[in-house]
Write a protein that binds this DNA or RNA. Sequence first.
DNA 1: CATATTAACTTAGCGTGCTAACAATATTTA
DNA 2: TAAATATTGTTAGCACGCTAAGTTAATATG
Lengths: 151, 151
Amino acid sequence: MPEPIVFEDTVSYLLAKVTTAYRNTIEQHMAKIDLHSGQVFVLIELWHQDGIKQIELAKLLNVKAPTVSNMLRGLEKINLIRTKKTTKDGRAMTVHLTEKGKKIRAEVEKRWIDVEAECIAPLSKSDRVVLFEVLKKLRGTYTGQNVIDED
Amino acid sequence: MPEPIVFEDTVSYLLAKVTTAYRNTIEQHMAKIDLHSGQVFVLIELWHQDGIKQIELAKLLNVKAPTVSNMLRGLEKINLIRTKKTTKDGRAMTVHLTEKGKKIRAEVEKRWIDVEAECIAPLSKSDRVVLFEVLKKLRGTYTGQNVIDED
DNA sequence: CATATTAACTTAGCGTGCTAACAATATTTA
DNA sequence: TAAATATTGTTAGCACGCTAAGTTAATATG
């Protein structure tokens, strides 16, 4: 007879709970500069490489094409980005930061520092280091480049 | 002159990324038994204590009242729960598992084991232990009962 | 007792994710 | 070259979070 699972004792359960709550934290902080969490992640990618195609953005963000489509509509509405048809490929659209989109980075960075502080506040230094490494591994699982290590 | 932040080097960034990916994993597994991730979390609370009020459910799930309202509508539609007006308080609604709602637990547990396995697969045993503890601390941050420890 | 406030819940509307289905363009293959 | 297949992006519609605003019922205050 299988014992009932104590869901609360699984990493999956805790991870799901923490991550939901955590998304909220980002929303709260970014709302102060009239941004949503998803928009911030798009901007981060564009600050890295401006002018990339939507499909590339989707891969970097690890989301699907329709999600990118929606987000870009929102970002275009508040004048942070513009989309352009490419000449090489009649299907593709490239995404470009506006001046406003470039400038807002400083604001986002300020807020991000607050988010990070709030995030790691309850953790000891060693916990922080371990969490960072573990999250990198977990991220690998979901983005493909998985590395299994034993001990 | 402040240096630009490397967002990717923050715990917050990684946590947010893992969040999204992770929610997807739960969705995928639970879709096999025609459930959505949010519904599973509601059921878990009800398996603990059936017949509680919506407001209590909201507190346990750490979500707002409208979210509970929406989720319950979905769960009621697929006959996993029923809501009832309470006699004591004319405003309150209590939430009750149906027979189907009670029985589906076994199915969810099976799937949850898969989710957990997938979740912790890339982690060493020591990583798993540390992650579990760290997540518990982080969860405390967002649910109120915060414990700061130093080292 | 009457009024004001608080509490529980719903509805409307939005952002962020998804899938399914579609249009348009590029590429492969026959 | 023509036809079949891939790719890029959009639209429609859903789940799951939120806030704001409204209803109804309970409680506090005058």
